[in-house]
Nucleic acid binder design. Sequence first.
DNA 1: CGGGTATTTGATATAGGTCAAGCATAGTGG
DNA 2: CCACTATGCTTGACCTATATCAAATACCCG
Lengths: 245, 245
Amino acid sequence: MIERHLAKLRARATVSAEEEAAIRSSLGEIREFAADEVVVPALKVQDHSTMLLDGFMCRFKDLRNGKRQITELHVAGDFADLHSFTLKYLDHDVIALTPCRAALVPHANLRRITEQFPHLTRLYWFSTNLDAAIHREWELSLGQRTARARLAALFSELQIRLQIVGLASDTSFDLPLTQTDIAECMGLTNVHVNRTLRNLKEDRLVEFEGRRLTILNKAELWRAGDFDPRYLYLDGNGTAPSLGP
Amino acid sequence: MIERHLAKLRARATVSAEEEAAIRSSLGEIREFAADEVVVPALKVQDHSTMLLDGFMCRFKDLRNGKRQITELHVAGDFADLHSFTLKYLDHDVIALTPCRAALVPHANLRRITEQFPHLTRLYWFSTNLDAAIHREWELSLGQRTARARLAALFSELQIRLQIVGLASDTSFDLPLTQTDIAECMGLTNVHVNRTLRNLKEDRLVEFEGRRLTILNKAELWRAGDFDPRYLYLDGNGTAPSLGP
DNA sequence: CGGGTATTTGATATAGGTCAAGCATAGTGG
DNA sequence: CCACTATGCTTGACCTATATCAAATACCCG
């Protein structure tokens, strides 16, 4: 059930049996979310965090004119809003992009962890810092990368994050997002994403059919995206998979 | 000496006398940095974090072609790299934008805090989550705001962050950044920043002369930037309900 | 099989980039 | 005290990556 979450943690650090038990006993209700359902509304005080078990969620912020920026994608094993534990309410919404299943973790239980398990606390702190590292990489994409490089970097990131939790092979994975979703991640329009995708396909870097992404040439994809996976912090002592080329 | 740091924390939560003492006793060496000096090099393992006492620092990432994205600005009172405590090394550089003074805080001392002061630990965790909230707001700027709105939002953010630590009045503050620095924050060119600044000046929203920014019409500036300060989490003022005792 | 959603394509527009030059300013050293 | 250099600011002319608008498919799912 929380194997993907444990896999994500163990890709970066050791989690003891005691800590694993503490995590398991912190779980509350299991909930399902429909696609497009709001998981965490902005500005509403929270008393729990949401551990994503299955499906894709995202965080986004928007402007008065309706333009929306997705600030991070979440995959199975991620906490979508662990930061609500210290922030109490979020400055953004979290929604399900696909049908999802999640475990709700009461903040009271997280607080008990901070009082009894300093190492696990630091690991969860690390986990929110990893979210921030992803935000920074996206800032780099949004501010400086071309459209082509943004998509290449995004796909490269997702392949690794999904592989860690057993949802991607070395070269392919299900990516049930629309081109509009991708556009909202990378600050582009759906039309331009469509054209840029075609361009990546024509160059035989990726294929994207039936909501499945296949990486045809990972070395070139990384190069096209100026992608350096070190911001994902996978060199810890865990079970990090081989990172390829 | 660390009054600005305490002011920043106390703008969000209560800090007890004991906790204040713990912070003070965690301080190590005081260091000065010249403008442009590297404060924390990317990818190098750190054994301390850097509490900025005076001056402006920034975090940035760059691409092969030399294009650089500043991902966050740091002002007096901020930890520039508190996240290095859990991450061990950073995915980005930290440099001084102006001459700076900083207190180095050994990670060993931070670890002691996590073992003895759970509430203060949560407060520092909060603090890195606040950095992430700023990253998200910048993602929104970089992905969706016009150049004019980006500058308006940036100036609005800085006025508040600086006022909290006593370095800004309601309407003005020293902003010792070049137009190129500002451009690298907001994903623009220095030329376009220059033109956009003129535009803001012509509309009597701000003045920017001699490295001092004056806000002439804050309501209009906030409106121009689609600025909503709630992402800065300033409503806990002193009472700390969100972080518990 | 029908209706909403997603993708694709074409034509055109524009915000912001690039290149280039001229000024202003401030520190430096003779 | 004044060239001298370096750095930053300003402005103009032109360019391009990406947006916008619009319309035609394609694709699901009920």
